[in-house]
């Protein structure tokens, strides 16, 4: 006999949904900012490319909807759109963000993901997972031998975790009880 351990209260597994405009425009704005900010203000924000706003949006939609299928599709679409902005093969970010969308949705069923501390931790964790998935596909399928540079990745993960606290707080305004 086996029993799944659920670490959430009834209230914490509240499922949220988003209206169509928010579903469409939030990822779009994230992609737009991700593309524009590094070159905005005479390139003074070029450090911004360590952040991954589309990843944060994927995580946010995943944990809010708590539906692994919806999370996977959201991650896939956002990732493919992000791939389209680069010159790399379509699917590198798509696969990585599909993993993240699925993982975030699945995790949100089991643990509390509403407080800033847990949001920071899950973002850091999923950033690393996202990076690993990206590198695996990059090395395994595309055969691009890019070095991992883990120290930089960990720093970027922490930075994204901090940014996630702010971004998730803003995106909470668009949530509707399901």
């Amino acid at each position: 006999m086996s029993a799944a351990v659920i670490y959430t209260s009834r209230e914490e597994i509240e499922v949220y949904r988003f209206n169509l405009a928010a579903t469409f425009f939030i990822p779009l704005v994230a992609l737009l900012l991700q593309s524009y900010l590094p070159v905005a203000f005479h390139g003074r924000l070029h450090f911004f490319d360590v952040f991954d706003l589309p990843l944060l949006v994927t995580i946010f939609f995943g944990v809010a909807r708590r539906n692994p299928i919806a999370g996977s599709i959201t991650g896939c679409l956002i990732g493919l759109a992000q791939d389209a902005l680069t010159h790399n093969y379509l699917g590198l970010f798509g696969i990585a963000k599909t993993f993240v969308g699925y993982g975030a949705s699945s995790l949100a069923i089991k643990i509390d993901v509403e407080n800033p501390g847990s949001r920071f931790l899950i973002t850091v964790g999923f950033y690393i997972i996202h990076r690993i998935a990206y590198l695996l596909v990059q090395h395994g399928m595309v055969e691009q031998n890019a070095p991992a540079n883990w120290l930089h990745s960990i720093g970027a993960a922490l930075a994204n975790g901090l940014l996630a606290i702010v971004v998730f707080w803003v995106l909470d305004k668009f949530k509707q009880r399901g």
């Binding site: 593309s35 524009y36 070159v39 680069t86 890019a146």
Partner: peptide
Amino acid sequence: QVIGSSGTEQSRILY
């Protein structure tokens, strides 16, 4: 005029 970028370190693209 440079109007955008790929927004990721994995691809150094400008628009």
